[in-house]
């Protein structure tokens, strides 16, 4: 199987089939990541489309010694952050909140709320790790922070969630 970076090198030359393969590989995990990040399905879908548009448009600027996954998630994360900043009224997000599926237990819903309420810096590492399966070194590329910081943020995120769930 061709690596993401090999495919991306082909995309840079205009290979549409290579782009199609990358879309197949990454659309679902990217959508799950954006969905949890934005907490809003419609926003996540828009951002997903925009992410692929940026990837296609910026294909020529992709350097083969980069990791595609880090590059793609950095684009997605930056778009999500920009969109979030543009929303002046924070409540807009809450109003559009996806309602929890009825089968879900109380604890699960509480914990999901806690994940949503985590500070952005902690939430980013948690979501990149869980939905993108990223290693610490990949996250340092996406978030432009040192390896040790990634580790400690992940640790803190888990600890906070655990403390929050113990108190309830």
């Amino acid at each position: 199987m061709e690596s993401d970076e090999e495919l991306m090198t082909r995309v840079a030359l205009g290979d549409e089939a290579a782009l199609g393969l990358l879309v197949e590989r990454y659309t679902e995990p990217l959508q799950r990541f954006l969905q949890r990040w934005t907490r809003n399905r419609v926003d996540a879908e828009d951002l997903l489309q925009d992410t692929w548009v940026r990837i296609a448009r910026g294909a020529k600027t992709f350097r083969p010694n980069q990791r595609f996954r880090s590059w793609a998630y950095r684009i997605a994360l930056n778009l999500a952050r920009d969109a979030h900043r543009r929303r002046t009224v924070r409540e807009a997000y809450v109003a559009n909140h996806e309602t929890a599926p009825t089968r879900t237990s109380e604890d699960t819903i509480d914990l999901r709320r806690q994940v949503d309420a985590l500070p952005e810096s902690l939430r980013d590492v948690l979501l990149l790790r869980y939905y993108a399966g990223m290693t610490e070194s990949e996250m340092t590329e996406v978030l432009a922070i040192p390896n040790g910081t990634v580790k400690s943020r992940l640790h803190t995120a888990i600890r906070r969630l655990r403390e929050g769930s113990d108190h309830e």
């Binding site: 549409e16 782009l19 879309v23 197949e24 879908e45 990837i55 296609a56």
Partner: peptide, 19 residues
């Protein structure tokens, strides 16, 4: 559990942009 966005739609748009 959120329904996935139709892959075809994502692909078509990205392909148009690439072209």
């Amino acid at each position: 559990r959120v329904p996935a966005l139709p892959m075809r739609r994502v692909q078509d748009r990205a392909t148009r942009v690439l072209r």
